[in-house]
Amino acid sequence: MSRVASMRQSMRLEQLRAEVRAIAAGGKDPAAALPFGLEALDGRIAGGGLADAGLHEAAGASCGYSDDAAATLFLAGIAGRRAGERGTVLWVVSRRDLFAPGLALAGLPPERLLIAEAGRDEDVLAVMEEGLRHGALAAVVGEVGRAGLTETRRLQLAAEEGGTMALMLRRWRKADPLAEPSTAITRWRIGPAPSVPLPTAGVGPPCWTIELARQRGGPGFSLITEACDAQGRLALPALSPHRPDQADGGEWRRAA
């Protein structure tokens, strides 16, 4: 067999595999991605956004409650945008501290939310896997303290099979939760950042430091954004070196 014929055969085989994955995912495109709508983020993420049929992880930048809350709302915004107007999000909790009104302010309203309680990490992972394989959910979110390569690989395969986005909130326990190896496509660290000063007296919009600690197919990066709005959207602060109208970053440096 010539080299050209061999290449054509390999390309055809990969095409057939993609078609099989799409059929298994209920006709959903396994290569589809959910963009943030911010070039400062999407332009630096491989694929231009978060893979729809993939596992993505987030953890607080530290073990503090404010960092954990920021990571929770970050995932809520992603899940809310993934659900849109008709989808349902399954959120598997490990403890009863999920605040529904806060999730709604980040773009995930109660009518789009289904909560399941599972005490142990093993139970959370099992429920997540079942939800992902079902294929009818917009996204599945799970809160865990420990999940190794085997567990995350199972979730990734389940996400691909069901064409459903898997979002894992990594809880702090004794050490950095993102230090544990994982097969997740993206891994994020989220923490609060100082609000941009307003021209008048008052408190500016809440801001986050968003760090893409690891991604498949690209380097990591870090930037500051405003927190999710009620539609789950992120925005760049008014004084930001990443905004086209603030390219020199001078005002941002003076405000920092």
Rank of each mutant, 00 (worst) to 15 (best):
I210N: 04
P244A: 12
A69M: 14
L236C: 12
R17F: 02
G47S: 13
I185Q: 13
G217D: 05
A213T: 00
R82K: 14
E85Y: 03
P206W: 09
G191Y: 01
L34A: 06
R44M: 13
P237W: 11
D121A: 07
G204H: 11
P241W: 06
E117V: 11
A100W: 01
L198C: 14
A61W: 00
E111Y: 02
T150F: 04
L16Y: 00
E211F: 05
P101I: 01
S222K: 13
V92W: 03
Q9E: 11
G217T: 07
G84C: 01
D229M: 14
A79L: 15
S66G: 13
L167P: 00
L223W: 09
E143W: 03
V196K: 08
A230M: 15
D248Y: 09
D229Q: 11
G119E: 11
E14G: 00
G249C: 08
R82H: 02
L13H: 06
A118Y: 04
P199E: 10
Q215G: 02
G204S: 08
L114A: 12
R153D: 10
L75A: 12
T72E: 11
A238T: 09
L157A: 12
A83L: 10
A159K: 02
G37K: 12
M128S: 00
E226L: 13
A76R: 02
D121W: 05
A53F: 08
P177R: 00
E143H: 06
D52R: 10
R8V: 04
G191H: 03
Y65N: 08
L236N: 13
T225H: 15
L212Y: 04
G43D: 15
A59L: 01
G220M: 08
G162Y: 13
V4R: 08
E151W: 01
C63Q: 06
L125M: 15
E161F: 06
R171Q: 05
P101S: 04
K28E: 03
A33V: 10
A53N: 09
G80Y: 07
M11P: 00
R170V: 05
A46P: 01
P30I: 12
C207F: 13
G60C: 06
G220Q: 12
D121K: 11
L149P: 00
G80Q: 09
I78K: 09
A139H: 04
E117K: 08
R171A: 05
T152I: 05
A100T: 11
G218Y: 14
G84F: 07
R133G: 11
D121N: 13
M165T: 13
G37W: 09
G48M: 09
I210C: 10
P101L: 04
A71T: 09
S10C: 03
R154A: 06
E151M: 05
R214A: 08
D248S: 11
T200V: 12
A166W: 08
P181H: 00
R214W: 02
R233M: 13
A138T: 09
A136T: 11
A24H: 07
G119R: 15
W172E: 02
R86M: 12
L236T: 13
P206N: 12
A46Q: 09
D52Y: 08
H242A: 14
V140P: 00
